[in-house]
Amino acid sequence: MIEVKNLTKRYGDHLALDDISFTVEDGEIVGFLGPNGAGKSTTMNIITGYLSSTEGQVLVDGVDVLEEPLKAKAKIGYLPEIPPLYVDMTVEEYLAFDCDLKHVPAAKKQETIDQVSKLARVQDVKGRLIRNLSKGYRQRVGLAQALVGNPEVLILDEPTVGLDPKQIIEVRDLIKSLSRKHTILLSSHILQEVQAVCDKLVIINHGRIVAIDTPDALSRNILQINKLELRVKGPKNDVLSGIKQIEGVKLAEILRIREEGTVDINVETEEDVDVREAIFAFCSDNNYPLLMMKTEEINLEDIFLQVTGEREVRR
């Protein structure tokens, strides 16, 4: 549905995108992952025809975005990084304007507005000025705007930014339900966010694609068990020295004391050594209740380290 071929974008001397190629199949949800400034928004702006690439080509459903822009744009619903909202309008007026822009027939206008505001959950603020809406609502109005005209392709640039945790889950569910009828490309700089909904991840850094794979395959490679955080009930010095003596533990240090009589400990182990069972055994032998044990959260840096094999992510 979306074919991105050898995309390069130069801003003067700065190379924002360097020979990027990937495809998004029909009905697929693809997550576009990368730290801030990696080139996600630039790529999305090129796909939607807002920017032009220096080199390369984008096909949306076989239509070249540069050669037949109107035809290609009609197939795309776009939520940019900053929702393009006219703050002087009410939500209803804004969506009506968007219907006009996207050539929704007059007879179907009201129906479309009702439908998208229901999907994006903005029905209850329809009559309010966008100026007076909170960030979360603005984001959802932006999402409603992208859905107008029932486009085949949805391009969502950081759709959950500014939403509270409950709304993030709602938007995630919404995206999942939309995927039945739409092809979706969404970007994020948080792995957990895209992991949950995407069929495929495209990871980009410094304008280059560093990996394209399924979320499972990516996270399987980087399950981190050599960094643990523990909370143990017991005298802190005894616990710490006990854990230090476990074979394979490279480093153990007290992180903080959160609860009375317990201690939080940070543990690092040798590569490829799993000490979790040994720690459990130590605690149960000494009758120190183990209140918490978690592996460090996988973040994007770790993925980069993994997929690029670099020790340091260059800044």
């Binding site: 025809g49 744009k73 776009y78 940019p80 393009p84 822009l101």
Partner: peptide
């Protein structure tokens, strides 16, 4: 300034 040009320029209009 408000980035609303993004909406106009990515809409199917000339």
């Amino acid at each position: 300034k408000n980035k609303t040009d993004q909406m106009l320029l990515t809409a199917p209009i000339k």
